[in-house]
Design a protein around this nucleic acid. Structure first.
Lengths: 222, 222
DNA sequence: GGAATAGTGTCTGTCAGACAGTATTGG
DNA sequence: CCAATACTGTCTGACAGACACTATTCC
């Protein structure tokens, strides 16, 4: 039974929506290697402490950003001798979606950057961010995934804007509303309307409890 | 820099099609724990030897089954303190698709079992097989994935039967051929027909070279 | 009443599936 | 010619998207 000297880590790609664009959370590295540079939040798996790799990822996000993401999904595992200068390493990477409202007052060691303006990142973090975006955009085409970027309550026009920001293309209003209706995951908040503009107020919706933790899939996309 | 005592392993779910049904490859465990029982082929990552976890999976499949699968995809990573009695472990699991013709003359330590008749497996291998089937069936609904279960050359009726076996439901012949045409990944083998029956012979097709390593996706499924 | 946005009714082109026809082999 | 399977032409119902209309607010 070989005792392998593999460095076991987790990294997290935390995405949110701000100013109509997807943002990814970066953390300033406190220790070598690459101390002082911005990278994905990550850390070693603590076997004595963590129930599994997902628990490690939750711990890392709690420690670095003080966030408990409502949606967290395993993205993939990256490994090899070259990605970390300390030696053969393995990173289980998770992808988190968080409503912007939960990310107020981030500390000094973390920041959000537009996914279209991500600087060069250490390790293979650049490729990891790309793969996360690919996954999120892919799943958004046929599932309810983007609702996890919204807060508790939201209007259908707001939700459509979120889908359009993630997918990067405008959507048909009638089709979008038909699909949301078919997915049957939203319920109107009785009597709750979002006013404020000089126009008809919009009905507020919330996620049905059954869909809080699971996605809803549309057979033919969108 | 903590030296984590995490057991780093890879497991492989190798699927093939035999007698019109999906089969999964099991290997008899030679060592403890669970010595003598059937389980997914797996083993430790060898950092000195393996370029990454995928290389570990290829090495394991080569060693245990003598196979180099034409299609190999990372499924997910499973981890925790309870899945392996030796301690906190982490398994990067890969899913392989192999044409049945490449699995002739398997040794004594391996066997194929129908995925509907998989016995209770040690570790969390039962759940892993379920997740692999879910992934393969899901992807088969909108991609060219099942072609990797066919040999070099095949007819369209044969390919349709493969899709039907994987998906577990009959497909419309006209729609299926339209989709295969749209995917533009197959080319007829000039002058090659599959005869043998008392009926019109079928055109043989092969995968276009550009699609040997990548999948082709259909926007609206099937 | 006007501006602005929310929400809905209806038409139409496109596409998946059904059906039925033709094609080509062996016996 | 018959049986059996390969392949193809055409119709039809369903659905996505476009358009136009109504609804409701603030000013």
């Amino acid at each position: 039974m070989p005792h392998s000297p593999v460095l076991c880590t987790v990294d997290a790609v935390l995405l949110t929506l701000q100013q109509g664009a997807l943002q990814v959370l970066l953390a300033r590295r406190e220790r070598a290697p690459f101390a002082g540079t911005w990278a994905l939040p990550g850390g070693f798996i603590h076997p004595q402490e963590d129930a599994d790799a997902q628990a490690s990822a939750l711990r890392v996000l709690q420690d670095k950003a003080g966030v408990r993401p409502p949606y967290l999904e395993q993205l993939a595992t990256f490994s090899g001798p070259a990605r970390d200068p300390r030696g053969w390493s393995l990173a289980v990477v998770y992808c988190a979606l968080v409503p912007a409202e939960r990310l107020q007052g981030l500390g000094d060691g973390v920041r959000l950057v537009n996914v279209d303006e991500v600087p060069a990142l250490p390790f293979d973090h650049g490729a990891i961010v790309c793969q996360a975006l690919e996954r999120v955009r892919g799943k958004s085409q046929y599932s309810s995934l983007p609702v996890h970027l919204c807060g508790e309550q939201f209007t259908l026009p707001q939700l459509q804007a979120v889908y359009e920001a993630v997918l990067g293309e405008p959507l048909n209003k009638v089709s979008f509303r038909r699909k949301m209706d078919e997915l049957a995951m939203l319920e109107p908040v009785p009597g709750a309307l979002q006013g404020g503009g000089a126009h008809r107020p919009a009905q507020l919706y919330r996620l049905r409890p059954a869909f809080r933790r699971s996605l809803s899939l549309s057979p033919r996309g969108l």
